[in-house]
Design a protein around this nucleic acid. Structure first.
Length: 472
RNA sequence: GUGGCUAUAGUUCAACGGUUAGAACUCUGGUUUGUGGUACCAGUGACGAGGGUUCGAUUCCCUCUAGCCACCCCA
């Protein structure tokens, strides 16, 4: 009965609080504690792989001039024409939040004269990119990319190596993937091919069967007709001439070599003649990496939809013309971008547990202000000696402190109260068994070490062997 | 940008055109004034926003916002 009287003012308070609340912008996300562990893992993996293969880390600004992307990624691409976060700053400059990494990296290569370094220059990059899209799961307005670029290298070995690195990244995280690969040739052979393609689509009645979008695309970007997902368009395109048959000698040799090396490395790939990619600067090799389709129980949705369902986790290719387009000297180059959010989602879907970091944690608990002071100091001493210590000195009650110790997964808890303080002792509690012992404070380190050695077999624990299927 | 579905505690999910909108997990407190992880008890906490229909809307209708799905496209 009294509840009613109490409840009313609380509701008013609630309303006030609610009015003050902010919510996140559309399509962006907060990454909280548990999820962040996956990002840490991926970033570490990315750093390790990059450095093994000789890439050095660089960072470029999130802001660039709009013209940079218009000239490189392409003015008519969707990324630039409709998905760019752009604005005019206070001095009237047209600015964009970078929608991808490559143009900024190439800009930096030219601007800092990196062609004076031993070639090729291998860059490793990790950071957020922005695209103003309609959000969906697996599609965010801000996402994080791991990017590798090799500038100043034309060997097909580099193409395969870059694919290999991306492939290793996934397989070492226990994600089964397949490489979709194609060559779109150089500007010369491509224009010849596009003429052939135009002839093909102009044949009687074909154009009328195409979807509305493709009819528009016909004049703007003919290549894109190939990867339209509308059934009718795919039927029309099924017998279209394939670019691999029209590559010039140089491009064909290059592509064949890339595939040969891939075979050599046992990397599963699918030669996909319809893979085109929506960025203007690509030449020769283009690829995407998609998770391998997991078999569904229902046979029905296998044939038609399975192909289109997979979001790609990584995309990249060669861009031999880009350095020149942006004002550098002609320089072959290539790279990939890899979306960490999608990878995290995938890992969580297939449910691989992370390796626990709760190893050998020692918790310091205290009762009373004097004991707290002593443990406050002692905590620093233990930390400097390299012990994995944890505490909750802001809490007074022992119960609350043990709860925290338990949450942290502590192995041992040291408890110091008034009595122990006077006696010169301390309690050491084994958190698994719940047994505890009063020991001489002076012998504290030898007692701890004794217990750590007995209790667990892994005291160093960063790079142990894979136990079962945990990732590390 | 186009089309469809959805919106209830921090989370996952109920119910209902009508007095006080239920539960589980979480969180806080207690059983245990110096002892966690199990158990039991109690408490905090919600109808996305605005408008309309109605005597009365969390429920029906519209708009907005956000999320999901399919396109477009992409990581």
């Amino acid at each position: 009965m009294a509840n009613i009287k109490i409840k009313k003012p609380q509701n008013q308070e609630f309303r006030k609080r609610k009015e003050k609340k902010f919510s996140r912008l559309r399509g962006v996300r907060d990454i909280l504690f548990d999820e962040y562990k996956y990002y840490d893992l991926l970033k570490k993996k990315a750093c390790d792989l990059a450095s093994v293969y000789g890439f050095n880390r660089v960072e470029t600004p999130m802001l660039e001039r709009i013209e940079l992307f218009e000239r490189s990624t392409g003015k008519d691409t969707d990324i630039v024409s409709k998905e760019m976060y752009s604005f005019i700053d206070k001095s009237g400059n047209k600015i964009a939040l970078r929608p991808e990494a490559t143009p900024g990296l190439v800009r930096a290569y030219i601007e800092h004269g990196l062609f004076n370094l031993p070639q090729p220059v291998k860059m490793f990059w990790l950071g957020p990119v922005f695209r103003y899209e309609k959000p969906q799961s697996n599609r965010w307005r801000q996402h994080t990319q791991f990017d590798l670029e090799i500038i100043g290298e034309d060997s097909p070995v580099a193409d395969t190596q870059i694919i290999l690195i991306a492939y290793n990244f996934f397989s070492e995280l226990q994600i089964d993937v397949q490489v979709q690969i194609n060559s779109i040739g150089c500007p010369e052979c491509r224009s010849e091919y596009i003429n052939k393609l135009e002839e093909y689509y102009k044949e009687r009645g074909k154009r009328t069967k195409l979807c509305v979008d493709c009819k528009k695309r016909f004049n703007k970007n003919l290549l894109r007709l190939l990867d339209c997902k509308v059934e009718a368009c795919r039927e029309v395109s099924a017998d279209a001439p394939q670019i691999v048959d029209y590559l010039c000698d140089g491009c064909r040799d290059h592509f064949i070599k890339v595939l040969e090396y891939l075979d050599e490395m046992d990397i599963p790939y699918n030669l996909n003649p319809f893979l085109v990619r929506g960025l203007d600067y690509y030449t020769r090799t283009v690829f995407e990496i998609v998770p391998i389709f997991e078999e569904t129980e229902n046979e029905e949705n296998k044939d038609s939809s399975s192909f289109q369902r997979q979001v790609s986790l990584c995309g990249g290719g060669r861009y031999d013309g880009l350095v020149e387009i942006l004002g550098g000297r002609p320089t072959p180059a290539l790279g990939f971008g890899l979306g960490l959010e999608r990878v995290v989602k995938k890992i969580r879907e297939i449910n691989i547990p992370l390796k626990s970091d709760k190893v050998d944690i020692i918790f310091l608990a205290q009762l009373g202000d004097q004991a707290r002071r002593k443990m406050f100091v002692f905590f620093e001493e233990m930390r400097r000696r390299g012990y994995k210590v944890r505490q909750a000195f802001t809490k007074d009650r022992l119960k609350a402190q043990l709860e925290e110790a338990n949450r942290l997964g502590a192995k041992q808890t040291l408890i110091l109260g008034q009595k122990e303080l006077i006696d010169g002792t301390i309690i050491i509690r084994d958190m698994d068994s719940g047994t505890q012992e009063v020991i001489d404070f002076k012998k504290i380190y030898s007692e701890i070490n004794k217990r750590l050695e007995n209790g667990s077999n892994s005291s160093i624990g960063i790079m142990e062997e894979k136990e079962e299927k945990k990732i590390n």
